[in-house]
Design a protein around this nucleic acid. Structure first.
Lengths: 138, 138
DNA sequence: TTACTGTATTAACTACAATAGTACAGTTGG
DNA sequence: CCAACTGTACTATTGTAGTTAATACAGTAA
């Protein structure tokens, strides 16, 4: 469901953020769905609760979650504005490699073909997990 | 000519590598052109010689430079194979944001429009304000 | 020889990522 | 109320990467 890669130089909390965002985008986590508690998810991933706390906090700041003291963390309702700003950031990211490719003398058509290819490709970490609701139980 | 950004979280040696690569791609540094010595460039950028050494070393490993003990560092002659592998890496980089954009529900056409836009844009590092519109499509 | 080149090594300092432990504040159900 | 859960905050410690610093060694050339 949420697998961490310790050989990845990317920080654990960044990996967690990515996974949660991806699950939200895929619709696996509907709006107002409660997330595992900081301590619970930390136990599931065998990382420190502080690491989860940082991931959740960042996601809250970025507008993906909202957190309620004493209750938990919940998926935020997506706004059109939020999606647009996320898309804009991603489109901007693409500009850098494109400009480098032009400097390398790569034709625009070549790039566009790969864009279509990437867009149509079955995406990364492909398997859909199943929903498993669970209460805390010692 | 080669300006470092200390507010950039990217390591100095990475910034230096990027700049040198860019100058090579732009043809400002022809093959076999001698680069500033490690100590000289370090003095120019007011950074430690070790930082320059690391940048040069990485560029040598990546095939951009060759270095001769006692003489200096020189721009390597570009090979078709080298360019192809660089291009492949950049194309691969583009795949990640594209897949995220699809998850966001962004249309392929929207992405492609921005690809064209980025490709045709003149500016890269530093210079802004010059909106030299060239070509364009009806 | 002298003065330049690249190269290697070690030490120290800083920042960040992560763990560990503790403490406090708010919610909820029995 | 109380116990058990939630989020939140803080300090201390470890490990690693980036950077500076200083020194040394090896090859080239005037």
């Amino acid at each position: 469901m949420l697998q961490l890669d310790y050989s990845n130089p990317q920080p654990l909390y960044e990996q967690i953020k990515e996974k949660v965002k991806e699950m939200i985008f895929r619709g696996l986590l509907p709006a107002h769905q409660q997330l595992p508690s900081v301590r619970e998810l930390a136990a599931m991933l065998t990382v420190n609760p502080n690491t989860i706390q940082k991931a959740y906090r960042d996601l809250e700041i970025q507008g993906y979650l909202y957190s309620v003291r004493g209750k938990g963390n919940f998926v935020a309702a997506p706004t059109q504005e939020h999606i647009a700003s996320q898309a804009e950031a991603l489109l901007k990211d693409m500009a850098v490699p494109i400009k480098k490719l032009r400097l390398l003398g790569i034709a625009l058509e070549t790039i566009q073909n790969r864009v279509v290819q990437a867009y149509e490709e079955k995406s990364f970490s492909g398997q859909a997990g199943h929903d498993h609701h669970e209460g805390g139980r010692p």
